[in-house]
Design a binder for these strands. Sequence first.
DNA 1: CACCTCGCTTTGAACGTTCAAGAGGTTATT
DNA 2: AATAACCTCTTGAACGTTCAAAGCGAGGTG
Lengths: 389, 389
Amino acid sequence: MADKVTIATVAAHANVSRQTVSNVLNTPHLVREETRERVREAIAALGYRANQAARLMRTGRSHLLAVRIEPTHDGINGSVLDRFLHGLTEAAAPAGYRILLYAAADDQAEIATYDELLATYELDGFVLTSTHHGDVRTSWLAERAVPFVTFGRPWGRLSPERGAERLARSLPASGAGASEASQLAEPWGRLSPERGAERLARSLPASGAGASEASQLAESWGAPDSHPWVDVDNATGTAAATKHLLGAGHRRIGFIGWPEGSGVGDERRAGWAGAIGGDLPELARATVDGVAEGEAAARDLLSMPDPPTALVCASDSLAAGAYGIASPGVAVTGFDDTAVARVLGLTTVAQPLAEAAARCVDLLAGVLDGGTAPRPVLLPPSLVIRQSA
Amino acid sequence: MADKVTIATVAAHANVSRQTVSNVLNTPHLVREETRERVREAIAALGYRANQAARLMRTGRSHLLAVRIEPTHDGINGSVLDRFLHGLTEAAAPAGYRILLYAAADDQAEIATYDELLATYELDGFVLTSTHHGDVRTSWLAERAVPFVTFGRPWGRLSPERGAERLARSLPASGAGASEASQLAEPWGRLSPERGAERLARSLPASGAGASEASQLAESWGAPDSHPWVDVDNATGTAAATKHLLGAGHRRIGFIGWPEGSGVGDERRAGWAGAIGGDLPELARATVDGVAEGEAAARDLLSMPDPPTALVCASDSLAAGAYGIASPGVAVTGFDDTAVARVLGLTTVAQPLAEAAARCVDLLAGVLDGGTAPRPVLLPPSLVIRQSA
DNA sequence: CACCTCGCTTTGAACGTTCAAGAGGTTATT
DNA sequence: AATAACCTCTTGAACGTTCAAAGCGAGGTG
């Protein structure tokens, strides 16, 4: 009873060989039904469970996925990662995977950790968060053919030579020197038809901002370093918030976001710009994230001659600051549906984190198990309406 | 280069046998210095890393610790777990351990998961959070001699028979029917001398509440199901907040907490009661956690004939609700230093989460590696003063 | 009848590590 | 001088699983 139950124990109990038990577990169709049943009964009776370490040694598959746990920056957005992790863990278990955590101070340290984890634990794959422009992590992993998914689309930007080289390796059939037009066309095709069309329709009508957003997306999307990813459509989120404000009668709607260059921030601004019919720089402020910063930016916007009557903010932190000093009539929206938004009563954009996590696992499991070609997933956020707008 | 570097590769490169390489890694003192150096150079030159799976198969040590990731209840306290997890991950790595996540809906599911994880991944140990009265998880683990630490002290409460039975098994030498006095005396001795004395001095002087708190602690502490734990001294936290209010001139200080029976909640109330010189039920309200609940309780307290001028709350959620409706003169304190407290400017009690996590790893690693007898660790929280009090 | 194929099952080896035992040489002990 | 004790290192086996190959009986084919 207390002794370890191995495949040999089961084999003896069912009067078959080790390999037959293994086959029942891994390739049941090779085993005669009667035998299969007998083995299954033995497994159940003995409470046998396959030893992952031994299995790993033979197959090289650890069934372990790694995720980086970041220090919470200002704590406000911390719960986002928290919820995402929970979603990952829940989604991974039924697929037969477990989540391993690692910490890293920066991208270089993170790469060192990959190396370490791959060498010692033979991890099956990685889930990366916080992708950004010029992300060295994805190329490192891709070069070594390590399966991974990013939560956050790739923001691309490799040097031309490297890009061409990698493209030639990964897509030998397609034209390496594809024209801009084909690069623009192809990526959309990778989305599921409905989503792709829906998104295309939504992005293109908008004037300058919409177009530049689309081409930027295409650039990274069809780029040689493309890889499976899951993302929430940030632009749709801020657009929804903006439309909600328009519907409430607001005509001058300001935007408080982050400095240009952060993909996510640019997207959120593009959503706002698209909804009001074009980017109006005089109505937008860019600042690093933070409550005090949001307050300052809001003060600045609200003190202009013809001030906005509503503010769309790129984060709940900024929104919290803005809401704190805005006079009652001024509407404010945030982003992320954090606890702070809940407590303050901020209307905010909620990301479907559990869904996003589940799709990350799907994609990774697909690559690992099925070898299916992973398609990017873009999820729509939802607007949570509270009293602030 | 691309080929796997195993211990055999290193052995060949250094002109020694496999076992010698193994000895250099695990029992270096058995190897002559010159050989040791040669092997180490080979290891460095080849970039060898021990394969954990193979090592695990032989030794039964996975170097993996598991932690449950809970769904964030109301999101406000979510970041607490988040920070704790980050601390664990960071502390575990240098000690040679990695953190594995698992999700479970309730204690029973959690136990099933233990079983699964132990059988398939041969986990080395568990870190449990959210310990509570009648926790079945700890006894399950203890019965199977699985190493674990809890973040949160044991709240005990086994049926007498089971207690006696387990006591007889685990402490064959000591008297099973120990008197209350010895139970009270012994536990304090397990703390480091200074801490024990400090804590004893702090708890006992208080009148009714302090005494009952102390005996309750003793009961669970010296209880047969005691195990290594790390906790933050909740009572000290609320006491510090209360003293801060007393120092600011407040004389009638109310308390908003949770229904009796949650160990943590009772402790936080005891801290308040101790600081004001005794538990005054008319100044205390108990409710489930939540912003709206905090608001209601505060309204109730503040509408009494001789209302309190300050409110000590058992959580930032409750405090957020209370602070929202309290008139400017009324001071409010929370607990946990969440993002909400930061944004609202709530004075609150901060738990040293990174430190707590590190101590959890220390204790667990101590049991696993050194076989040292683990001593409970009680950490002092700190008061973060903001404008709310 | 000899041979091949098919369905099901078994056998031996291997994954990379550590344990248990022992080999060979040098030094200490009696 | 014989023997024990020690130090250093090596050899074979084992952990629990799956891979690769082969065994074996039944049925089909030339």
